[in-house]
Simulated assay, not measured.
Amino acid sequence: MDTLNITGNIWGLAALAAAAMLVGFSKTAVSGANTISLAVFAAVLPARESTGVLLPVLIAGDLLAVRTYRRHAHWPTLWRLFPAVAVGVVIGTGFLFWADDAVVRTSIGAILLFMAGVTLWRRRSAEKARTAVSPDPDGAGEAGEGDDGAPAGPARRGRAMARSYGVLGGFTTMVANAGGPVMSLYLISAGFRKLGFLGTSAWFFLIVNTAKVPFSVGLGLIDAKSLLLDAALLVFVIPGAFIGRACVHRINQRLFERLVLGATVLGGAQLLLS
C-alpha cells in the first residue's frame, strides 16, 4: 500500500489529523458526523485503501465511546441486529475483493450522498415524532435516566426492520465505513433518546468494526504501512472524544446536522466527479 506517500504533504496530513479528531468527537457526541472524516480520508488517500487506514482510527473512537457510555447500551437491540449485519459485511467484502480504486471511489461518493439523503429524511421524521410527544426541540432528553437505555414506549421494532437495516449497515460499513447514518436511522426510528442512542451505537460499532479487521487484512487494506500512519493519527482521536463528551449536552443538534449534511454532500460529490 502506498499510503505513506502523503507524509510529504503537510496539508494532507493536517486534513487527516482533523478528520481523526472529528472521529473522536462524533463517537462521543454526534454519531454519524464522521461521514466527513470518510470523505477526507478518501480524498487524501487512494479510496480503496482509505477504508483500511480509517478502520483502526474508528475502533479507537469506539473504545473511548464505550468507556463513556457503556452502561447505556440496549443489548436486545444489538443481538437483533448482529446476524443481519454479518450478512452485509460478507457481501461488502465480496464487493471490495472485486472492485478497483475507481469503483470504490465512486461507490463511496454514492454511499455518502445516499446516506446524506437518508439522514435528512431521518431528521425530519424524528422532528415530527418529537413534536408529537415532547416539546424538547433538540430531542436531548436522555434515554433511560435510571433505566437500561431501552427505547421509549411502544417504539420497539420487529425483526424484519432489524434485518433490512442490519444488512444495509453491514454493507456500507464494510465498503466505506459509512454505517453510522444507517445505525442512526434505525435507533432514532426505534425511539432511542440521546444516552441510549450513544451507548447502543458505541457497543455496536466497537464489535462490528473489530470484526471487520480480519476481512480488511485479508483484502490487503490493513498492513504495516497503514498501521504506521494510524499510529500517528490516533493521538488526535483522544482530544476529539473529550471535546465531544464535554459538548454533548450543549450541542445545537439541528445546526450541527445541517453542517454535517452539507459537508457530506460536498464530499460525496467531489468523489463522484473526480
Rank of each mutant, 00 (worst) to 15 (best):
M1A: 12
L4I: 07
N5L: 10
T7N: 05
L13E: 11
A15V: 07
A19K: 08
G24R: 05
G24E: 04
F25Y: 13
A29V: 02
A29I: 00
A29C: 14
G32Q: 05
G32W: 05
T35K: 02
T35V: 15
L38H: 05
L38G: 15
T51R: 10
L55R: 04
P56N: 04
V57H: 06
L58P: 07
L58I: 12
R67H: 05
R71N: 07
A73Y: 02
L78M: 10
R80D: 06
L81C: 08
F82A: 01
G88I: 03
G88D: 00
I91M: 10
L96T: 03
L96H: 08
D101T: 08
V104M: 07
R105V: 02
G109L: 11
A110K: 00
L112T: 03
G117A: 14
T119A: 14
W121D: 12
R122A: 12
S125C: 10
A126R: 13
K128H: 12
R130T: 03
D136K: 01
D136S: 10
P137S: 08
G141A: 11
E142G: 03
A143P: 03
G153T: 07
G153D: 14
R157F: 02
G158N: 14
A160S: 13
A162T: 13
S164Y: 12
G166K: 08
G170P: 01
T172H: 09
T173P: 08
S184R: 13
A190Y: 13
F192D: 04
L195D: 14
L195Y: 14
L198F: 08
L198Q: 14
T200V: 02
W203Y: 11
F205Q: 08
L206E: 02
V208G: 04
T210C: 11
A211G: 12
S216P: 00
S216T: 02
G218V: 09
D223W: 11
D223R: 10
A232L: 15
A232D: 01
L233Y: 05
L234Y: 01
V235R: 04
P239W: 00
P239K: 11
G240M: 02
G240W: 06
G244S: 04
R245Y: 00
C247M: 15
R250L: 01
N252Q: 13
Q253V: 03
V260S: 06
G262C: 11
L266R: 07
A269P: 03
A269F: 15
A269Y: 09
S274V: 09
